[in-house]
């Protein structure tokens, strides 16, 4: 019989600690420094493919910093006045938002804090106003590198353990070959498996995973 679950499990908060650095060790260290006010960079820009962890890092930095805020394309005009402002999805900024971010960067350059921006391409390739694009490339720019499959396997095991699940090697391998391997997708799958096994009071074995994934598709 199925045990019904209330949908009350909150998505895990994005923190530096639950970010798997993979090839992003330097970036992670840099952001910890910036959030902890140990580094006075006026502009930091991250870029990477969807699912590579840009938003996670931005949110983690905002959580770790004492005076910080997060906005993304569409909500920039209401940006709070903070020491560390994260601006996500800059490639989608509207015209007036671009002017606003332009001004924010100028202010940051005058010593009034840090703008931590993220987009989908390196600064020079952003289709934004010239004066904003060049400003985003003014400070430190980092690519957020996706994890390797080996790193993802490690992460899957660790994250499952956090949820009280044990994943056998064959299960990890099956998941990594049968679903999209970006982090949000893997996270969603894990969430689904957790729920699925709990509802059925069964442990996460390969047959259960197959069944769960089939239901997800069907």
């Amino acid at each position: 019989m199925r045990q019904l679950l209330l949908a009350i499990q909150p998505a895990p908060e994005a923190t530096f600690d639950n970010f798997v650095p993979g090839a992003n060790v330097e970036l992670l260290a840099r952001l910890r420094d910036v959030a902890g006010a140990r580094s006075k960079e006026a502009v930091i820009y991250l870029w990477g493919d969807p699912g590579s962890g840009r938003t996670h890092l931005l949110r983690a930095a905002v959580r770790a910093a004492p005076d910080a805020g997060y906005v993304s394309a569409g909500s920039v005009l209401g940006a709070p006045e903070v020491r560390l402002l994260a601006v996500d999805d800059v490639e989608r900024l509207a015209d007036d938002e671009q002017v606003a971010v332009f001004r924010l960067i100028n202010r940051a350059r005058d010593g009034a804090g840090t703008v931590l921006a993220a987009g989908n391409v390196p600064p020079a390739q952003l289709a934004l106003r010239d004066d904003l694009r060049s400003r985003l490339g003014w400070g430190l720019a980092y690519q957020v590198h996706p994890l390797t499959d080996a790193d993802k396997a490690l992460w899957l095991r660790a994250e499952a353990e956090r949820r009280g699940l044990r994943l056998a090697d064959d299960v990890v391998w099956y998941v990594l070959t049968h679903v999209r391997r970006d982090m949000p997708s893997l996270n969603a799958i894990l969430e689904h498996l957790d729920r699925y096994s709990l509802e059925r009071q069964r442990s996460v074995t390969l047959p259960l995973v197959r069944q769960a994934l089939q239901e997800l598709e069907g």
Binding site: A29, P123, S134, G137, W138, G139, L140
Partner: peptide, 21 residues
Amino acid sequence: RSNVRELEGALKKVLAFARFT
């Protein structure tokens, strides 16, 4: 080649990487 700001950004990146490693 594009502009002076990106030159500055690139230099920063090199110096930060040297310090980090």
